[in-house]
């Protein structure tokens, strides 16, 4: 491993993308992710890559469509209002089965909301966002190191499944500075993409990238193909982390930066003799329903903590399936829950 560097989450993400072989990045400025385009505007030229500031988030995601269709590893990033603008493109990208990485350093909403951290885009990210039956793979890092690791994973998953992958962070994670290490080896060989529109050679039939299928039978067949792919992702790509859940009576469920706060609260609860544990989904889609549900055998109740008004809690309830009570504690609008607040909620349930 290379030396440890102290980096902001946004910048570390940019560097990880470069290490993963991403050579095209299209984005539009928006707080709190602007360090990412700023970093890549300096870094991409050093590696012969392309940084292009698009005229809008709409244009940026469609540039991603074009570059991905041409076979490149490509990324865009934004924050909540900008991610809303990208939903049209994401639906087309999912329909045309193009691999790409989309970063959401989420901020408070709805509407223009605030520039402070939030998790209020959970449902948008995990339940669709744009029109049509499609899924994003959604990865939720909780530290700057995990930002790096999951960014590299995101590009691999995108290529493996020909599917858009979202990295779901928040303003806190993007701005936070932590020591990180990057893999030494810069990936150079990308997986073959025989479907890409690279210019037709005589060796193959022409390639067409499209999400259009006017024949209902064929569109249904395409949807079934997509669903089969999503089912495979559910089987093979679910990731989560558990902390002190073995004997936990109160299982706190949280992801991303909130999971760090929740972990401090779990430690504080343990010091008070409360058997608390933390379950942290790393993939928000596919969601670790089974792993979380298994904890209902021993736990007395579940506490979902989010920086929103209650979104992931719906998935926690699905996982627990009525066997134990599921409680919710959330702050929103850019307010970040404190470990003390979470501890107080745990104590109510102990």
């Amino acid at each position: 491993m290379s030396e440890k560097l102290l980096m902001k989450g946004n910048e570390a993400l940019g560097e990880a993308a470069v290490r993963a072989g991403c050579r095209l990045y299209f984005a539009y400025p928006i707080t709190p992710q602007s360090e990412l385009p700023e970093y890549l505007s300096r870094r991409m030229p050093e590696v012969g890559g392309v940084f292009l500031q698009a005229e809008s988030e709409v244009a940026a995601i469609n540039m991603v469509y074009g570059a991905s269709g041409a076979g490149a590893r490509v990324m865009t990033s934004s924050s909540s209002p900008g991610i809303s603008l990208k939903q049209e493109g994401l639906s087309y990208i999912a329909g045309a089965e193009l691999p790409c990485v989309v970063v959401n350093m989420a901020r408070g909403g709805p509407g223009l909301g605030s520039i402070q951290p939030s998790q209020s885009d959970y449902l948008q990210a995990t339940k669709g966002g744009g029109h049509g039956d499609y899924r994003l793979i959604v990865l939720a890092p909780a530290s700057v190191q995990e930002v790096v690791d999951l960014t590299i994973l995101a590009f691999d998953l995108a290529d493996k499944y020909r599917n858009p992958v979202m990295i779901m962070g928040d303003g806190l994670l993007g701005q936070m500075m932590e020591p990180v290490t990057f893999p030494d080896e810069v990936k150079k060989e990308l997986p073959p993409k025989p479907w890409a529109t690279t210019g037709w050679t005589k060796d193959r039939p022409k390639n067409i990238i499209t999400s259009l299928e006017l024949q209902p039978e064929r569109l249904e067949e395409h949807n079934r193909h997509l669903q089969a792919k999503y089912a495979q992702i559910v089987r093979e790509e679910i990731r989560w982390d558990e902390y002190l859940t073995g004997d936990a009576e109160v299982v706190v469920v949280a992801y991303g930066t909130v999971a760090r706060i929740a972990r401090s609260a779990v430690d504080a609860a343990r010091e008070k003799g409360i058997k608390a544990g933390l379950f942290r989904p790393i993939t928000l889609w596919p969601y670790p329903y089974d792993a979380l549900g298994r904890l209902a055998d021993a736990a007395k109740n579940f506490l979902t903590v989010e920086m929103n008004c209650g979104q992931m809690v719906e998935d926690v309830r699905l996982a627990v399936d009525g066997r134990r009570p599921v409680y919710f504690y959330g702050r929103s609008g850019g307010m970040v829950p404190t470990p003390e607040e979470v501890l107080a909620e745990i104590e109510k349930l102990a």
């Binding site: 540039m63 074009g66 570059a67």
Partner: peptide, 9 residues
Amino acid sequence: AVATGIKRA
């Protein structure tokens, strides 16, 4: 925008 992505790639 799509053409831009292709051409830049």
